[in-house]
Nucleic acid binder design. Sequence first.
DNA 1: TCCTTACGCTACGACCCGTAGCGTAACTGC
DNA 2: GCAGTTACGCTACGGGTCGTAGCGTAAGGA
Lengths: 208, 208
Amino acid sequence: MSDTDPKATRTGRPRSTAADAAILEATRASLVDLGWSKLTMSDVATRAGVAKTTLYRRWAGKNELVVDAVAVLFDELDLPDRGSLAADVQGVVLQFAALLERPEARTALMAVVAESTRDDSLRHRIRSAIVDRQKRLVLLGRERAQARGELRYEDDASAAARNADLIFDVIAGAVVHRTLVSAEPVDAEWASGFTSLLLLGLAGAQAG
Amino acid sequence: MSDTDPKATRTGRPRSTAADAAILEATRASLVDLGWSKLTMSDVATRAGVAKTTLYRRWAGKNELVVDAVAVLFDELDLPDRGSLAADVQGVVLQFAALLERPEARTALMAVVAESTRDDSLRHRIRSAIVDRQKRLVLLGRERAQARGELRYEDDASAAARNADLIFDVIAGAVVHRTLVSAEPVDAEWASGFTSLLLLGLAGAQAG
DNA sequence: TCCTTACGCTACGACCCGTAGCGTAACTGC
DNA sequence: GCAGTTACGCTACGGGTCGTAGCGTAAGGA
């Protein structure tokens, strides 16, 4: 979360974990009230009841702070086994969509991704804090489908990885685009249509 | 482009169209050099050889200016008939990807979309200036596929529209996510894999 | 020649940034 | 206890951007 290694029991006054929690919560609250562009470090510090200098001692700036503040939302992600690949796809779609319903996520996610196009370390931070948490669900769903016999196991490991990346980009990309660009809701009906398109393809979905 | 209606031949000194072009080009140049977050109105004005007040007379702020500056890139979009639905899908994917290769588009697109989550008028501006230009290609590809017999004409008009929206979100979303979130290139190989997934579905693509 | 609108320029208050300096608080090892 | 070390709150600061007001000038139309 911060930049130092906590496992070494160093001497001196330890960092307040309560302040960490207060800052991240204040960041989310500020995102809800002000949105990404109007969020300021000073405002977050005031809300958290913390000096501005404390923020800069722990985070390099607004980008890193917001990534960490939003990342914890992705810990809630879970994918119970719904018995079929189609049901699991719908489940993961609705999970992503529910996250993007939250105003702090809506305004923050695209903004930090936009920033990451010019900041490699920020992109890595996003990947490990957010993207990998999402991709986990996709990999889990694929394993289950393979165990059920709905998908076959792939021989070539690198091809399998490429395929998983492709599927992940399709699912996450479609949900994000629908929600933030088209600005239309991802409801059960849309999730159903998307699922049959993903499973059956363009011609197959039309026939069914 | 600007906010006034140009068809009424009003009295007084007309706005310099040369300044318009210079400003938009300066905005793109500034996006390339500085990126979205470090782009300032003062910098654009200096590059364009124009007073800062002139910018504010034409655009409400950075958001609107950048949308207009990037929108013209989407005029280049074209989709020649490549003879089959699969080839046309690959074509549109590579078109989108080529646009996202340009650094001014990479840094600007996600940023303005992020801003649009809290600004309805900005969202409408993005839709008419950018999104509709993209969606046009998808609709064109579908019509061709229907004429070829690869897709059947749909009876229900509203269902057809929903379906087109779905396909558009899947294609555009996947390309954007691959390029900006996963930060991996959209090359011919990826486009090919995506196309077979879209046409045949998860199980079908694995079989083929 | 008047009228109207656009332009360039300057200046301004307001705000945010990120850092430095200082005194104080909290915890560790002797 | 006591020294050593690190974190914290607070204040203050120079530097930068924002968006606007005011003014004189330039470029068109009636």
